[in-house]
Nucleic acid binder design. Structure first.
Length: 309
DNA sequence: AATTTATCCAACCGCCTATGC
DNA sequence: CGCATAGGCGGTTGGATAAAT
């Protein structure tokens, strides 16, 4: 029953592991003169002791002449994040929008860089939404304590500033989480639906990250061979998710406190920051009685809570 | 300087889909 | 229509290297 594996047991003596320059040369020579044709028979014709699948991968991920090498640009990074938010782990699909990049390369870059970055920002890399687990809140309290201690000891020491920035980032995402869940709960009650709520765009800066349907893809990106133009791409990119620097986060944090005590930093809040804190102020203005926080705590601690997505 | 730990990424593995017979 | 096969995809592994202790 079932089909035999690509490289069957009688191929047990086939070579595996890293490719040697000689093997690369053989594969390149063969494909350049004959094309790859049938991958299954290619290794035999090319004089390689490899399975066809291995040859195909080597060609697709390394030897292909149109492969772009080197670090991902910030633009590429943003595009990957945005595409992932709509396509999920469809690496080959994502790769079609990044000419010269392979699905494997993008997948590796996601797993080693972007995923970590999102987690550090308190965002769930799968959903691209703020994380709602309580460990996250523990991190926040620890960071705030560390930030306060660091400020007391040496307010301008870089690690203290970094901790403050991290705490600010976590707090910002927490606010977003609370806003999102509290408002969605309220509106779900009012409207009988948890699909949307009136503040979503305000809070999120109307990022396509949170759209239920995949974001429309500009026609220019549909053909890999066409390449792309960065000016048009900017319409398709999210700007707030990846690139927020600790400096910006610190500024946002300072904005929440007494501005008179924070004159050492330039106040350059982005529109998304502004809307975030406008939303926060509105929420606080509407919900300043003590039952508000009790409700939030009840929501976050209840196992059946909608927060526990 | 030696050892441990973390990071990166090429390559493999197993499953799914498309295609041809 | 059912089966066999090749191609393709996403998840995972493991070796090389860098950084930290």
């Amino acid at each position: 029953m079932g089909r035999s594996p690509c490289c069957s047991s009688d191929d047990a003596n086939l070579k595996k592991g890293p490719w040697t320059p000689e093997e690369d040369e053989k594969l390149l020579d063969y494909i350049n003169t004959h094309g790859h044709g049938n991958w299954k028979t290619l290794p035999k014709h090319a004089g390689l002791n490899r399975c066809g699948k291995s040859c195909r991968l080597r060609w697709a991920n390394y030897l292909r002449p149109d492969i772009k090498r080197g670090r991902f640009s910030e633009e590429e990074e943003r595009l990957i994040v945005n595409l992932h938010s709509t396509l999920g782990n469809k690496w080959s699909k994502i790769a079609t929008y990044l000419p010269g990049r392979t699905d494997n390369e993008i997948k590796n870059f996601w797993n080693t860089h972007i995923r970590k970055k999102l987690l550090n920002m308190g965002l769930d890399p799968n959903t691209h939404k703020p994380r709602t687990d309580l460990n996250h809140l523990l991190n926040l309290t620890q960071l705030i304590c560390a930030a306060q201690l660091g400020s007391l000891m040496n307010p301008w020491e870089s690690s203290a500033l970094k901790v403050q920035a991290d705490a600010a980032q976590l707090l910002q995402n927490l606010i977003q989480t609370l806003n999102t869940n509290q408002l969605s709960t309220i509106t779900a009650g009012l409207m009988g639906s948890q699909k949307s709520y009136p503040y979503e765009g305000l809070i999120n800066g109307t990022s396509s990250l949170y759209a239920d349907e995949p974001a429309p893809v500009p026609q220019k990106f549909h053909s890999m061979s066409q390449g792309y133009e960065s000016a048009d791409m900017s319409d398709f990119l999210i700007s707030e998710l990846v690139s927020e620097s600790p400096e910006t986060a610190t500024t946002s944090m300072n904005q929440m406190g007494d501005d008179k005590t924070n004159t050492n930093h330039s106040s350059t809040m982005s529109p998304a920051d502004t809307s975030m804190f406008q939303a926060w102020e509105k929420l606080m203005g509407d919900e300043t009685d003590s039952s508000f926080w009790k409700d939030i705590l009840d929501l976050t601690s209840s196992p059946s809570s909608p927060i526990q997505r």
